[in-house]
Design a protein around this nucleic acid. Structure first.
Length: 483
RNA sequence: GGCGGGUUGGCGGAGAGGUUACGCAGCGGAUUGCAAAUCCGUGAAGACCGGUUCGAUUCCGGUACCCGCCUCCA
């Protein structure tokens, strides 16, 4: 059995991972609020925890890991979007418009995350499907003295949980001293947070013991993890920005609702994404979605490769240069695996497994994958005894742990070409070259080659002939008129 | 103001108290119409100041700078 070590944010230490039940390893990751397309930052935890999911499935068996990632479909941003559509003249009730908005956003999310090679989690619960469970948990918290209702609101009594602030390393008193907390008249303590809030007729709402209303943000994850994974489970993941207040509040709610349990044993937080060295934000004009990149012809696998190149615990900088480099590396890796199929029975490279088992060191894992690719196919040419195919199969199986090289080389090239056939261009260039060899006037060949390179095509000429490959930044439009 | 993370060779980015990370780029060579790709070889590092140690880029302390969270942006 492979020993997995994970950095636990709760204890601030790297620990040997020992699941509560090896027959059912349970992971919960905070998913998106479905009000718009996922931006690039949203994709990082998806790729990080997908890789963890793959590792756990490898170690404990594919059928012995339960991975839950929620959709938050109760949120004021969704309401605002729906309201804006209604005011713009869209037909239907507000509720129908909200449903429409969340449905389409979830569909987009699936399309985009699929493109990144992320497996679908075992369960993808929606908050709206667990309102009853949330109400039950809130009622229990009130009964236990951990929450109170005021003016249609229900608030969590932060002072009732002695460990409040432990996960994120803060003290309630310090935070209040920081004076950045909302001071609402109905709060006993400025740090108390909302479990339930009233909805007026213009907002979606559900009947509850405290009147018609809707849940606060944090309670959904507590209710859904309880329903799908139980009061104690193994790993809880999410972005570091969620550590406070979201995760801190989850801990408080869940531990007070089920003091007999331990809630999440291991907390994992991925660091944030930056773009060209700066925080991605709309005001800086460097804000973009996963779909934007895919639409620009950046393959999803390139995005994944770039993400995995930096350890999840460190800030990751997305740059165009990294993307181009990743694409070249993937070109090379695909040229070594070719079109061999993925066969699960092959054993993945032990060094890659060890790298991942050491707190998900994906950067080192990729290095080992590249080393493996070099060693199994040192020349990059077919061997007579078929050892290159065995090597390719092993490499493919190893890459699967990282969610990489899941296509065939042919499919990979086709993705990049977007339906363009380079054969006529290769034929034309080959003909020009043959003519030039005879005439000694290479100007026409060089001109066409330069045009192809400008279009992002990699040009390889050997005695055997001409080979054209789509490279980073391939742009079919620039091929106009070359044949 | 409170809390947390970071600073590695031209760029990206890991591990490890003492032995080549690795990739890209560079340089020399083979090959090529010229290139590309490939192959062979090669230089280059750990913000600053102290401390611990036989020995620190790796441990400890301090300084500087950068970044994140504390504002339902992952």
């Amino acid at each position: 059995m492979v020993t997995i070590r994970l950095h636990n944010s709760r204890t601030r230490a790297k620990e040997v991972f020992a699941p509560i039940d090896p027959q059912n390893v349970r992971v919960y990751v905070c998913g998106p609020t479905v009000y718009d397309r996922a931006h690039l930052g949203n994709a990082r935890p998806v790729v990080v925890f997908d890789t963890l999911f793959r590792l756990l499935r490898h170690v404990y068996g594919a059928g012995h890991v339960t991975y839950v990632r929620n959709f938050t479909d109760v949120d004021d941003k969704i309401n605002a979007t729906a309201l804006a559509r209604q005011q713009a003249g869209a037909a239907g009730t507000l509720e129908a418009l909200i449903a429409e908005r969340t449905e389409e956003t979830i569909r987009w999310y699936h399309e985009d995350m699929d493109a990144l090679g992320a497996l679908r989690p075992t369960h993808e619960p929606r908050a709206t499907g667990y309102i009853a469970e949330m109400i039950a948990m809130i009622a229990g918290l009130i009964a236990g003295g951990h929450a109170y209702s005021r003016d249609g609101h229900v608030l969590f009594r932060v002072r009732s949980f002695k460990d409040y602030g432990r996960l994120s390393g803060r003290s309630v008193d310090d935070m209040i001293a920081g004076a950045r907390v909302e001071v609402a008249p109905f709060k006993e303590d400025p740090m108390d947070f909302v479990l339930w809030k009233p909805s007026d007729d213009s907002l979606p709402g559900w009947e509850s013991p405290w009147g018609r209303g809707r849940p606060g943000w944090h309670i959904e994850c507590s209710a859904m993890s309880l329903a799908l994974l139980g009061a104690s489970f193994d790993i809880h993941g999410g972005g570091i920005d969620l550590q406070f207040p979201h995760h801190e509040n989850e801990v408080a709610q869940s531990c007070c609702a089920h003091p007999e349990a331990e809630f999440a044993r291991v907390w994992m937080h991925n660091e944030m994404l930056q773009v060209e060295g700066k925080k991605m934000s709309k005001s800086l004009g460097n804000f973009f979605t996963v779909r934007d990149l895919l639409g620009q012809g950046v393959p999803g696998e390139v995005i994944r490769f770039v993400f995995l190149g930096t350890h999840y615990g460190r800030p990751m900088d997305w740059t165009a240069e990294k993307a181009a480099q990743a694409e070249r590396t993937l070109d090379w890796l695909y040229s070594t695996v070719g079109d061999v199929p993925l066969q699960e029975e092959w054993t993945p490279n032990e060094k890659v497994v060890q790298a991942l088992a050491d707190n998900l060191n994906t950067s080192l894992a990729i290095t080992e994958l590249i080393e493996q690719a070099k060693s199994v196919l040192p020349k990059g040419h077919p061997s007579a005894d078929g050892s290159d195919e065995v090597g390719a199969l092993e490499l493919k199986r190893t890459a699967a742990l990282l969610g990489l090289l899941q296509s065939t080389e042919t499919e990979w090239k086709a993705t990049k070409l977007g339906g363009v056939d380079l054969a006529p261009y290769a034929a034309r260039l080959g003909a020009l070259r043959e003519a030039a060899m005879a005439s000694k006037d290479f100007a026409p060949v060089d001109a066409m080659k330069a045009a192809l390179v400008a279009a992002g095509v990699e040009v390889r000429m050997s005695k055997a002939g001409v080979e054209l490959l789509p490279g980073p930044g391939f742009d079919a439009a620039k091929l106009e008129g070359l044949v």
